[in-house]
Design a protein around this nucleic acid. Structure first.
Lengths: 189, 189
DNA sequence: GAATTCATTTGACAAATGTCACAAAATCAT
DNA sequence: ATGATTTTGTGACATTTGTCAAATGAATTC
């Protein structure tokens, strides 16, 4: 096994021990990618059924609204990148682009998914990924729906301070759902 | 098997055939509930690890912000009710309350979940539920993040017209993230 | 079916945020 | 280093939306 795969495998097998065979079978469908800043992983409106795991780097996701980029989230180290909506065969609602030169693992979901009906360990491995993803989505909704812009800003500053070092405020403002001028004024306080 | 369980079992076993034994094993942890309007299924800040499936009726979810109810969604027939956040042992962020007299199936997740490590059909059954839930969350985020209030209103009117028959506009307004006065003015056009 | 409660609409005003324009600061590329 | 580009900050003004108050309409209860 490529040593770079380990964090990904470990991250999603905390509730069961995977056999050597299962690990090998999963790794057959993984590859390591080294890509430069500004590289576009997934284009809006295109079909795509890979998922990614960030080993090192930063990724952003955005869509165009009346010609303006609206950022929807950022992924850093140990975060997953991808969407079930895409995996189900629908054209992507977002563009996913690297903000830094990054090392990623790509996962060929189309090949791995069918294995879950014959290998119970793989079923539970995939389950861990999707469960983690659903929890992430729940938090994202909680964050976006239940908090004011100022609260969101303060919590982001508290919980993910690296974001502010690595990601331009323009992107963060549109992620928070406010104009960059308003964010700038919030920060002035 | 109680005949009322069938829609729930069928809804989440479209990608595999469940054996009689597996179905029986799942049904052991289901019950049918008949409850009246205004009954509170889950209280904000309390722990709770049941999930529900709506056979007939309507359910809303809300939280209190500065003493005001903010509605976060509505479930009708064939929708699931519950959250992974709660299931992971955290106190609920929302209150879940019936809007109509309803018939629900309750699922004892705490008892069913461990079976997924020994029964691959149950693993894939649970997977179908969580996958469905994650897709629902993705759509919810897309809806709330990528659309203006007017678009949200029009899409809701187009895709879920029953909502407007069955759920008060006050609730819908707070779900859309606008005041009921603003919704009323939007509708005037 | 009358009374009471709840839901919806409308108006007047205030507050928050967006938009546009431009300046300052930081970063990047050669 | 230096010029060019990108990012961030600030002011003036317009627009949107919220808030408060009151009236109308609908639904529920006794």
């Amino acid at each position: 096994m490529d040593i770079l795969f380990k964090p990904f495998i470990d991250h999603f097998s905390t509730n069961q021990k995977l056999s050597e065979n299962t690990i090998a079978e999963i790794c057959n469908h993984l590859s390591v990618l080294d890509l430069d800043k500004k590289y576009v992983l997934i284009k809006e409106n295109q079909r795509h059924d890979f998922a990614y795991f960030v080993i090192k780097g930063a990724v952003r996701s955005y869509y165009l609204k009346d010609g303006v980029e609206v950022n929807t989230w950022f992924a850093l180290e140990n975060d997953m990148v991808g969407s079930l909506h895409n995996f189900k065969g629908n054209p992507s609602r977002e563009t996913i682009e690297l903000i830094e030169n990054s090392t990623l693992i790509s996962i060929n979901l189309k090949q791995v998914k069918p294995l879950m009906f014959s290998n119970i360990q793989i079923a539970n491995f995939i389950n861990a990924i999707i469960e983690d993803y659903a929890l992430f989505l729940e938090d994202k909704i909680y964050f976006s729906q239940m908090m004011s812009s100022i609260d969101k800003y303060l919590i982001l500053l508290d919980k993910e301070p690296q974001i502010f070092q690595r990601i331009p405020l323009t992107y963060i403002a549109s992620f928070l759902g406010i104009s960059r001028e308003t964010l700038s004024r919030l920060r002035a306080k």
